[in-house]
Design a protein around this nucleic acid. Structure first.
Length: 645
RNA sequence: GCCGAUGUAGCUCAGCUGGCCAGAGCAGCUGAUUUGUAAUCAGCUGGUCGGCGGUUCGAAUCCGUCCAUCGGCUCCA
C-alpha cells in the first residue's frame, strides 16, 4: 500500500500501481470524467500511469494550465493522426502545446495545405476523437526508436532521437498513430469535444532558416463545444481592438505605398496624441535631471565603424547615401547612441558632472525584412524616446533604479497593469556573439539584477537574449491578440564608451571610463501608441486623447452659442471641436460616440438661456447640465485622479 | 527573406463556374428640413476592379510576374 497526499494535505491509502484516474474515481465519478492528467510529485503524468510509491498527487482538469496543456498536446497527436490518414507519407517534426492551443510541423511532400483543407482535417480529427482512442505509453530503447522511424522513413523524428539518451525514450500510441513523445497525455481522445484548425504557416525545421520549411498547422481544442464558440467570439472581439483597424477608424495614422512600406504617416489626430505623450515624458524626464539634445538623421559610415554597428548590421541596413563629388558614405541613423557619444565627447568632463543624461526623441531607420513589418509595432522608420546616461561605475545601479521608476510611473499613468519585466543576459554557451570583456559583462549583469531586486520587480531572466553590447531589462506588453511586444528597455553598455574612448577626470585627477545606459521607457512612439491603442480599445485617457470634447448644437440657430462655449473651453486649455453639420442631434451624438470622443456637449435653446452645456459621457449617457466652468473642473478632476496626483 | 492567403470607390463589402455602360451601404457634395440625447429625406459626384504582361472574339473573373496587405517562420542595434 502507498500513501497519496492530495493538495488539501489529506492522505489516502491505495495499492501500489494506482493511477490518477483511479484516485479520481475513488473521490467522485464527476471528477473522474474531467481528469486530464495528474501532477505526481511536481511532474505531470498521464492519469493512467501507475504510481508505485508514496506521492503528492494533484489531479489536473481543464481548469488548470497543466491540464489544458495535456489536452492540447494530445490534440496535436490526434491532428497528426488525421493528417497522416488524409495525406499518407507525411513526415512529422514537432507538435507541442502552446499558449492557445497547439501546432504540428509536418513535411507533406508536394501537398500544399490551404484553408480549404481544414474542414476535412477537422472532420477526421473529430471522427478519431469519438473513437475514444487511448494514449498508450511505451518505454523503448534508442535502438528500437531508431528502427521504428527508419522504417517509417521519418528523418525528422530520427534527428530528434539522436539528441536523446537511451533509457529515457518513450513512445505514445493512439489509434493508428505512434509518436516519439515525452508525454503526458489525456486518458483517451473522447475528452476532446471540439477542435478547429486555426491557421497554416511555413516554419523552418528547428527554427533554422537554412533548413527545410515544414508546414505548421495551428489548432485548438476544447472539452466542450461551447468553449470553442466562446473562444472564437473572444478572438472576434480582440480583432476589433487591433490598432491597425482603430488607427484607420480614428484617423490616427496611415501608410502609403508611394512613401514606402513600414514608413508610417501620422495624421493630425495621431500627431496630437503623440505630441501629448512626448510632452508628458519630457516633463517627467526634466524632473529626473535629463537634458534634451537634437542630432541629425544621418551619420558618416565611420561613426558606425567606430561604434561596431557597421560590422554587426551594416549588411542588413539601408544602403548608404553618398555625397556627389567625393563619394563619402553616410548612413540613415539606425540608433541615436553614436551621435550622443559624440555629444559627450565635445568637451572634457569632470566626475562632478556625472551623471549626464542626454535625451532625444530620435527618429531612426532600420531595414526590417518585408515579412516582419506589422502595423505600427514593427516599422522601418520610428522615433525612440531615447536617452543615454553617462555615469560613473558607482552610479550605475542608482541610475538604473531611476529609469525603472520612470517606466513604472508611465505605466501607471497609462494604466498598463499587465506587463512582463524581462532581464536579458548573455548566452553562456556562445560568448563570441557579444562584444566587450567578460569582466564588464559580469559587472553589468550584476548591476541589473540588483537594481531589479531592489525595486521588488518580478522579472523573468532569459539567458541569450541580451543585445550584442550588453545585458538589458525590457518591459513587454501583450497586444490585442496576445502577441508580446517589447516596449520600454534599459540597457547597460560598457562597450560604446570604450569604442568612443569616452572619459572623465576623477577626483584622483586621472582619466576614467564612464558607463553608458541606453534607455527608452516607451521604446518607440510608434509601437507604444499601437499597444496603448489596443489596450484602451481607442478610448484614450482623457489627458491624452486628441479631442476631449465635441460641442453639438441642436440646430444651426445655436452655432454662435456653441462657438462661445468652444472659446471658453479653449481658455481652459481643453481640446474640443464643434459639429456644425446640418444633422439631427441623434445623428451627431451617434457619430461622436463612434469617434470615441470622451465628452459630448449638447447646446440648444435651454442651454443658451441658462448659459450651460448638457454633458454626455462617451459610452455612459446623459450627465446633466453644467456651466462651462463646472465642466472644466469635472474634466480636470478626472485627469488628476487618473494621473494619480 | 521564406511558406500560405488576400487585394473591387475615402471606409465596409457584393459581383457564382469569363459576356448588357462594375454594384450597395456609409463618408463627401447639392437641396429640402431647423431638429433635444446612438442613423431625416431626395438628388449627385466618385472606381485604368493593386501594377505590368499573357490567354481569349471578349478578363474584375483564367495564367504569369511584380508590388502591397494579412497569418506564421526567421530576424529585431
Amino acid at each position: 500500500m502507498i500513501n497519496i497526499t492530495l493538495p488539501d494535505n489529506s492522505v489516502r491509502t491505495y495499492e501500489a500501481g494506482v493511477t490518477g484516474l483511479e484516485i479520481a474515481k475513488s473521490i467522485s465519478e464527476g471528477l473522474a470524467r474531467n481528469v486530464l492528467s495528474a501532477k505526481v510529485n511536481d511532474e505531470v503524468w498521464d492519469a493512467t500511469r501507475p504510481i508505485m510509491n508514496d506521492s503528492h498527487v494533484q489531479l489536473l482538469t481543464w481548469d488548470s494550465e497543466d491540464g489544458k496543456a495535456s489536452m492540447w498536446h494530445s490534440s496535436a497527436h490526434l491532428m497528426a493522426e488525421a493528417v497522416e490518414a488524409l495525406y499518407p507519407g507525411s513526415k512529422f517534426g514537432i507538435g507541442p502545446d502552446i499558449e492557445n492551443g497547439f501546432y504540428y510541423d509536418i513535411d507533406l511532400g508536394d501537398k500544399v495545405i490551404t484553408e480549404g483543407d481544414f474542414k476535412a482535417i477537422e472532420e477526421k480529427f473529430l471522427q478519431f476523437a469519438r473513437e475514444k482512442q487511448s494514449f498508450i505509453r511505451k518505454e523503448v530503447s534508442k535502438a528500437e526508436a531508431v528502427s521504428y522511424f527508419t522504417e517509417k522513413g521519418d528523418e525528422y523524428k530520427l534527428e530528434l532521437i539522436q539528441d536523446l539518451q537511451d533509457g529515457t525514450i518513450t513512445f505514445y500510441e493512439s489509434g493508428q498513430f505512434t509518436d516519439l513523445c515525452r508525454g503526458p497525455h489525456i486518458p483517451d481522445t473522447s475528452f476532446i469535444k471540439a477542435f478547429k484548425v486555426m491557421s497554416v504557416a511555413g516554419a523552418y525545421w528547428r527554427g533554422d532558416e537554412k533548413r527545410k520549411q515544414l508546414t505548421r498547422l495551428y489548432g485548438i481544442s476544447f472539452p466542450k463545444q461551447q468553449l470553442l464558440t466562446d473562444y472564437l467570439l473572444l478572438l472576434e472581439e480582440a480583432k476589433k481592438r487591433d490598432h491597425r483597424k482603430l488607427g484607420k477608424e480614428l484617423e490616427l495614422f496611415t501608410f502609403s505605398q508611394r512613401v514606402g512600406q513600414g514608413l508610417p504617416l501620422w495624421l493630425p489626430k495621431g500627431a496630437a496624441l503623440r505630441e501629448k505623450l512626448e510632452a508628458y515624458l519630457k516633463k517627467v524626464q526634466k524632473k529626473a535631471g535629463y537634458v534634451q539634445v537634437i542630432t541629425p538623421h544621418i551619420g558618416m559610415k565611420d561613426l558606425y565603424v567606430t561604434s561596431g554597428h557597421y560590422e554587426k548590421y551594416g549588411k542588413d541596413s539601408f544602403r548608404p547615401i553618398t555625397t556627389p563629388v567625393d563619394g563619402e558614405e553616410f548612413f540613415l541613423k539606425p540608433m541615436n547612441c553614436p551621435h550622443h557619444c559624440e555629444i559627450y565627447r565635445h568637451k572634457p568632463h569632470s566626475y562632478k558632472d556625472l551623471p549626464i543624461r542626454l535625451a532625444e526623441f530620435g527618429t531612426v531607420y532600420r531595414y526590417e525584412q518585408s515579412g516582419e513589418l506589422h502595423g505600427l509595432t514593427r516599422v522601418r522608420g520610428f522615433t525612440q524616446d531615447d536617452a543615454h546616461i553617462f555615469c560613473r561605475p558607482d552610479q550605475v545601479k542608482n541610475e538604473f533604479i531611476g529609469v525603472i521608476d520612470i517606466v513604472l510611473q508611465i505605466f501607471k499613468a497609462l494604466d498598463f497593469k499587465e506587463f512582463i519585466a524581462q532581464i536579458s543576459l548573455r548566452d553562456p554557451e556562445n560568448k563570441t556573439k557579444y562584444i566587450g570583456t567578460d569582466e564588464n559583462w559580469d559587472k553589468a549583469e550584476k548591476a541589473i539584477t540588483e537594481a531589479v531586486a531592489e525595486k521588488g520587480l518580478n522579472a523573468v531572466i532569459v539567458p541569450g537574449e541580451a543585445a550584442f553590447y550588453g545585458p538589458k531589462l525590457d518591459f513587454m506588453v501583450k497586444d490585442a491578440i496576445g502577441r508580446k511586444w517589447q516596449l520600454g528597455t534599459i540597457q547597460v553598455d560598457y562597450n560604446l564608451p570604450e569604442r568612443f574612448d569616452l572619459e572623465y577626470i576623477g577626483s584622483d585627477n586621472d582619466k576614467h571610463r564612464p558607463v553608458m545606459i541606453h534607455r527608452a521607457p516607451f521604446g518607440s512612439m510608434e509601437r507604444f501608441v499601437a499597444v496603448l491603442l489596443e489596450h484602451c480599445a481607442g478610448k484614450f485617457p482623457l489627458w491624452l486623447t486628441p479631442d476631449q470634447a465635441i460641442v453639438l448644437p441642436i440646430s444651426d440657430k445655436y452655432i454662435e452659442y456653441a462657438k462661445n462655449v468652444l472659446n471658453l473651453l479653449n481658455n481652459y486649455d481643453l481640446r474640443a471641436q464643434i459639429d456644425e453639420r446640418n444633422e439631427k442631434i441623434g445623428k451627431k451624438i451617434r457619430d461622436a460616440e463612434l469617434k470615441k470622443i470622451p465628452y459630448i456637449l449638447i447646446v440648444g435653446e435651454k442651454e443658451e438661456a441658462e448659459n450651460t452645456v448638457s454633458v454626455r459621457r462617451q459610452g455612459d449617457g446623459d450627465k446633466g447640465s453644467y456651466t462651462v466652468d463646472a465642466f472644466a473642473e469635472l474634466v480636470n478632476a478626472e485627469i488628476e485622479e487618473a494621473m494619480g496626483k
